[in-house]
Structure formats: structure tokens, C-alpha cells
């Protein structure tokens, strides 16, 4: 089984968990390890970002939320985005056009996360939910079909954000997860310290840059392995002709988990390989 097939399987599991309510199981106490609206008629899990906002509004110190998110983060880091999240799968399926990662925009998703929290705190409202493209897809549209929602201003706002993000995804591969997803921002804090990650054998790396060209996120795995923007999707692994890259569970900070330059080899002067 190739890595790609295996990843498609886990992504299918993510979608399956997202719609597991179809079996008749109601809402559970579990948090979804990604962005999936709890308002989805078939959801059985709680959206972490939705919960975070509600906890901030109610003034609760969110131990349960932090514990679960930290556990998820330590387990896979942003691997959840690349391997499990249903909205990440949509990003993946629309990743037609690779583009260079604009590193200056990377903190945007943390700013969205911060803005979501501040809006909940100061305005006592779940503003992110009202703009969330995942909620547009998994809640607004289904409820329109069920006769609960109507075509009104909130619905049109949802559709507007969904359309914008979808267009963004088509133009820039994994646009949402690159720059905007607050859940991705939250998990990115754990990316270096998570137990699931890429490993690089420095002795085999020729710094040819093929891995970087294969990366849908437009980052350079061999330069900054397991960086906060890496979804750990593993697309770089089969691309590497010298088999220098591998993926799996290992201790954070173990050999091969650090960037190449940290292991003693000088970084290439040009850093970013030329696009073909």
C-alpha cells in the first residue's frame, strides 16, 4: 500500500467520523481533531474552535479543551490537517496549482485564532462560526435542505466565505490551511514537538530540492523539516530520489527530526529550488 493510498484511507476515516451521526449515534463528548462544525446534522463530535469561543464567552478556564487539543497536537501536530480533517481533504482535492509559500503570511492563521478568541471575549459572540467555510459546507447547506435554514443574510455570508475560500484553494493549493485555518494555527504550535513527523537522513540528502517542488504547501521539507506549516502529508517522501525522507512516529527532537542545517550541514545558498 502506498503512502498516498494509506492517507486517502485515513482521510476517508475523517469524513466517516464527521458523518457518523448517520448511524443514529447522537452528540458525544469528543472533540473533533480538525475543523468540523458541531452543527453539522451528522456530527457526533464537538468543533474545538466553536467550543473555544463558547468557553471564552462563558468565562470558563478551558482545561478540557486545552487538554484534548494538546493531546491531539502532541500526537500528530498538523498531521491531522493532512491526514484526517474533512475540510483539509477538500483543500487536498482542490490543490491543482502549487505556489510558493509566502512565509510572511504564515502568522495569519494565528492572528485568525487570536481574533476569534478576542471577538468571543469582547463581543460575547461566536463570530468565527458565522464566517467559517467548514460550517457553510457542513451546516448551512444541509440545514437549508432540511428546512431549518433559509436563504437570508447569514446564509449568504456563509456562502460568500465558502466561495471565496474555494476559489482561493483552486488558485493556491491548500490556501485555507496555509494562511487562514485557526485550528491549523492551534495545531501548528505543537508541530515540532508532536510524535508523528517527517525524518530526514542527512547523509542521503543531496539538497536537490525535488521535495520542495513536490510540496503542495510550497515549503522546503529538507530545509525546515516539521516546520509549523508542514501538514506532514508525506508527498515529499516518494518524490525524494535518494530516499532521505521518511514519516512515522518518533520522539520529538530525535535524530533526523531537526532541520538539516541543525545537524551540521550548511544550507544551500539559494535555499529555494527553481520551479520547473
Amino acid at each position: 500500500m502506498t503512502l498516498r493510498t494509506f492517507r486517502r484511507g485515513t482521510q476517508s476515516l475523517g469524513i466517516l467520523l464527521g458523518v457518523f451521526g448517520a448511524t443514529g449515534i447522537g452528540m458525544t463528548h469528543l472533540l473533533f481533531p480538525g475543523l468540523h462544525c458541531y452543527a453539522c446534522p451528522l456530527a457526533i463530535t464537538v468543533c474545538p474552535i466553536g467550543l473555544m469561543q463558547n468557553l471564552i464567552i462563558s468565562g470558563t478556564v478551558p482545561f478540557y479543551f486545552l487538554g484534548v487539543v494538546a493531546t491531539y497536537g502532541l500526537l500528530l501536530g498538523r498531521g491531522w490537517c493532512g491526514w484526517f480533517c474533512p475540510f483539509g481533504t477538500v483543500n487536498d482535492l482542490l490543490a491543482f496549482r502549487k505556489a510558493r509559500f509566502v512565509r510572511a503570511l504564515s502568522p495569519l492563521k494565528l492572528l485568525v485564532l487570536l481574533g476569534t478568541g478576542v471577538a468571543a471575549w469582547r463581543l460575547a459572540d461566536t463570530w468565527f462560526c458565522k464566517l467559517c467555510p467548514a460550517a457553510s459546507l457542513t451546516a448551512s447547506l444541509p440545514y437549508l435542505g432540511l428546512g431549518v435554514a433559509e436563504v437570508n443574510t447569514p446564509f449568504l455570508i456563509h456562502m460568500g466565505t465558502l466561495a471565496t475560500v474555494l476559489v482561493g484553494m483552486v488558485l493556491v493549493a491548500r490556501f485555507w490551511y496555509r494562511y487562514l485555518c485557526p485550528m491549523g494555527g492551534l495545531l501548528s504550535l505543537f508541530n515540532r514537538v508532536s510524535f508523528f513527523g517527517l525524518r530526514l537522513r542527512a547523509d542521503r540528502c543531496t539538497e536537490c530540492g525535488v521535495c520542495a517542488r513536490s510540496c503542495p504547501m510550497g515549503i522546503e521539507p529538507h530545509q525546515k523539516i516539521n516546520s509549523s506549516d508542514c501538514l506532514k502529508c508525506g508527498k515529499c517522501i516518494p518524490a525524494c530520489k535518494s530516499s532521505a525522507l521518511s514519516i512515522g512516529f518518533s520522539l520529538p527532537g530525535a535524530r533526523g527530526r531537526d532541520p538539516l542545517r541543525a545537524s551540521g550541514t550548511a544550507a544551500r545558498a539559494d535555499r529555494v529550488p527553481p520551479r520547473q
Binding site: M27, H29, A39, V46, S58, Y64, T126, S140, Y143
Partner: peptide, 19 residues
Amino acid sequence: QATQAWRIASVLCTSCVGI
């Protein structure tokens, strides 16, 4: 807080999630 999370998610306030 696990129960609190379940309570929030299992009663859907349509205006809260932008529906």
C-alpha cells in the same frame, strides 16, 4: 467541562453558528 462541551454541541442555537 466534557459535559459542558456536549451540552453546547447537542443543543443547536441556529443564530449562534450563523444559520
